[in-house]
Every structure is written in C-alpha cells, then in structure tokens.
Design a binder for these strands. Structure first.
Length: 418
RNA sequence: GUGGCUAUAGCUCAGCACGGUAGAGCACCAGAUUGUGGAUCUGGCUGUCGCGGGUUCAAAUCCCGCUAGCCACCCCA
C-alpha cells in the first residue's frame, strides 16, 4: 500500500503549540497591559484588504513591491494579505468614524501579518505584530508616548537591554529641498555607488543613507544631514521629542542614517534592537510618524504616529535572555479509572470540576503507565478508581507531591480538593 | 530575490571521504516492584535514509533536479 506524503505546513509559517503558548501569552498580556495603562484601546482589522490600499501606500518598499501576498477572490476583487497593520488601522479609523471622537484615537492591535520573503529564524511569512497607533494628533508628545510604550513593553518582559535608534526625516515642506542637496552631493560620486544606489539617487535618495553595501559607506560621513536642514516646525518637533524622551528617562541613540523610504513618513523615525548584537534580523520594533498616510489612502489629511513590534522576535529574545515562564499543568487533577469504568470516571471528574481542572485517562494501559503519565503532565492529584471503589462511590485520592493517599467518598472530593 | 550549509527512528544525531544486511542516545511500551509516578537496571517497538530522477550488478553513501529548514545578504518585525 503506497503511502502518500503527509501534508506539511506551508513554507515560512509555523504552529504555536501548547508548550509555546505560555510565553506568547505572557508577551500578549504584557502588551495589553501596557497599552491599557497608556489609555490605548484594542482594535481588530481584517487580515485581507484591497490590494490597492496596501499598494498605494507602499509601492517602493520591498514589503509591497516584492513581498506582498496578492490574490483575486471569486468575485474578481484584487485583495492582499496585510503586510503591516498601519494602513488598515488608518482606514478603520475613518470608516469607523473614530475621527469624530476626541483626538487622538489611541489604538493597539495584535495579530498576524504576511510577507512573502525568504524565511529564516526570526523572519516568517506569517508573523505576529503588536501595533500601536495614535491617530489624529501632530503633537510630538505622542511620538514620545508611543516610543515609551514600546520600551516599557519590552522592559516589562525582561528585555531592558535594548538600543533605540532615533532620527527625523523632516516633512513635505523641508524634505524636498534637502533631497536636492543630497542628490547634488552624491551625483559626482554616482559611479562609485553600487547599482541599487545609482538608481535610488534620482528616485529615492534618502535610501542612500540607509545603504549597507561596503562600497557606498565612505561617502555617508560627509553627506548633508537632514537635521541641519529642517524647517522651523520640524526642528521644533525634533527638539520636543528628544526633550520628552529625556524627561521620561528613555535612552536613545541618534542615527542620522535611519530613514524610511516612503513619502508619507514624516519627522520621527525609530527602531529598537537588542543591545548586544547588531544583527540584521533582530529588529524588535520600528515606527515613526506618518502625517501623509491618511491622504495617500484618499482620506482627509490626518497626522498619526505609531510603531510595530514583532512577537516572534520578542518571544524568541525573552527565551534567549532566560526569563522563565512557568506553564501551569493542563489539568490539576487526573482521574485514573480501571477498564470499563468510564461512566463512573466521568461522574467523578464532573464532581471534581466544581473546584479544579480535571482530565480522565481513558487509555487502556497499566496503572503504572497511567501514573507515569500523570506525573509527566504535572497533575497535583490523581484520583484512582477501581470497580470496588466505584461500587461504594469512593475513590483513592493521591496527592502527587507527598505521595499521601486516602479513601474519599465522591461527594467529599470538592472539599478535599478545594 | 541572491549566495552558502543541511535533510537518516517521535526527538538529537552517527554512518557517507573509499557504494555491499540501517545504528546510538533520548522518548515510548513492558518487566525487575504479587494494579501506584519521579531514581536505577533489563528487555522491546518504531525507518519508503526529505521527494523525484540518473550512474551502478548493487546507492543512506556518487551525480542532477525539486522541496523544506538554517546561515549570510537584501529588507524589515
């Protein structure tokens, strides 16, 4: 009989198994707790959006240009699996009329995102993000606020050893003139840049600063800096953000080469990395201000700021740092009946469930084997049930830690287990 | 998307340079223990050697393709 190949998980996605959940649950609870402490409310948006929503907002980014999961539904609609949360959250902000409520709307979301890129550790095609957005205010205090949320969340999880890179990229008013300065500086050096950068020079010169190719590095140091060419408003906001972070005691590292490739990003940008390694796959969080995004989606111009953080990487780092998450046993009480006593066992379990979590071992194996299982499962008590006991409506109740065992009438079990 | 490494029992891996009967530890099951877990000892079960093709009398082993995982790059989370 030829066996067919078992069907395995799709490339780049993974299961979170029961043994993984306590750690993930801890991360999620910490996120929800921090968000609530800052007055942020949960929002849930669809995993699918019109492809146009995503594409309008990020044509030039890898996340959209090469990594977008696009498909047509049965009605011929062009849809996409969301590669990040912000576009959808901003859409929902308007569609749900949150723009008519007191501003800003403070929102958070936890859920899966999808990017079709080459998987490796810490980078998956389906991954989970915590997304925090403050929409409807241009105040730099909110830039500082979302940064504080990100840092607090990581800190609460035991990840105090992080480095935050911070920069500003100006806005529609001052950036065009700066980009011209940047082009003017780089044009004579064009031949010395690598291919992508030669192209970026005209299309998106800001990305030259972000380039990591060795041959492009020598020219960065003398390149004009946006921070020297900010308009009055951007300069004031930049100063305010830093002042607020200083006041909150949040450390940051100024990185003039930290940029975003999209026009709707404005002013503040930041990324958070583990303090130790400077690796490339380990960005824990990233965010910034996007005052041009709502307009790019076709809504009224509305400022916003936020960040996204990857649960997959954060939980991985919590594990690496050695923070112990103790998993509670699935069942505190395990009922071990002899053969043919399923009905009595179910009734005993039912009685115990009034006060404890209870499972029954129905497997046809030796008592010794069942005891071994109970021990492995971490049960606090086992309830032994044989035919004679069942007749008398009693059981042997054994406490695993001490080994003490006593006969107990069924009706007394809740009191004994309480 | 580019380059590299890897794939053998449920798990971790050895075996492969030089082709010739598929191995260990752990886990699981059973016994020592006259129905009672954890420690120890003894025994036992489990394999289309990732998939497909090629070379050969003979392929886990050599060659090609594919798939998947990992690493670096790219990008970001």
């Amino acid at each position: 009989m030829p066996r067919s190949e078992p069907i395995k998980a799709v490339r780049g996605v993974r299961d979170l198994l029961p043994r993984d959940r306590p750690l993930w649950r801890a991360a999620e609870l910490a996120a929800e707790d921090v968000a609530r402490r800052f007055g942020y409310e949960e929002i849930v948006t669809p995993l699918i959006e019109h492809a146009e929503l995503i594409e309008r907002v990020g044509e030039d980014t890898d996340a959209v240009a090469k990594e977008l999961y696009r498909f047509e539904d049965r009605g011929g609609r062009k849809l996409a699996l969301r590669p990040e949360a912000t576009a959808g959250v901003v859409r929902a902000y308007f569609e749900g009329h949150l723009n008519q409520e007191p501003q800003p709307a403070r929102l958070y979301l936890i859920g899966p995102m999808f990017r079709y890129n080459r998987p490796q550790k810490g980078r998956y095609r389906q991954f989970f993000q915590l997304d925090v957005e403050a929409i409807g205010s241009a105040s730099p205090a909110l830039d500082a606020e979302v940064i504080e949320i990100a840092v607090t969340w990581l800190h609460d999880l035991g990840l105090g050893e992080v480095r935050m890179d911070l920069n500003t990229i100006g806005d529609a008013k001052c950036r065009p003139a700066y980009l011209e300065l940047l082009r003017a500086y780089y044009r004579p050096l064009r031949d010395k840049l690598h291919g992508d950068c030669q192209r970026r020079l005209e299309t998106n010169p800001l990305l030259l600063l972000d380039c990591k190719v060795p041959q492009c590095q020598p020219f960065k140091a003398d390149a004009p800096r946006i921070t020297d060419h900010l308009c009055e408003e951007c300069a004031a906001a930049w100063a305010a953000v830093r002042r607020l972070l200083d006041a909150a005691g949040i450390e940051y590292h100024l990185d003039p080469y930290l940029v975003r490739g999209l026009d709707y990003y404005t002013r503040t940008v930041f990324e958070i990395y583990p303090a130790q390694t400077g690796g490339s796959q380990d960005a824990l969080a990233g965010g910034g201000r996007y005052d041009g995004l709502a307009e790019a989606e076709g809504w009224p111009a509305t400022p916003g700021v936020g960040f996204a953080s990857g649960l997959d990487r954060v939980t991985e780092m919590v594990k690496a740092v050695g923070v112990e998450i103790i998993a509670a046993p699935a069942a505190e009480v395990l009922v071990l009946p002899d053969a043919e006593l399923e009905i009595a066992a179910a009734e005993v379990a039912h009685i115990c469930r009034a006060v404890r979590s209870v499972a029954v071992d129905y497997e046809a194996k030796s008592l010794k084997a069942k005891m071994r299982s109970a021990n492995k499962l971490g049960a606090r008590w086992v309830v032994l049930l044989n035919a004679e006991d069942a007749q008398q409506r009693t059981v042997q109740l054994k406490e695993m830690a001490s080994g003490d065992q006593v006969a107990v009438p069924w009706d007394d079990l809740p009191a004994r287990l309480a």
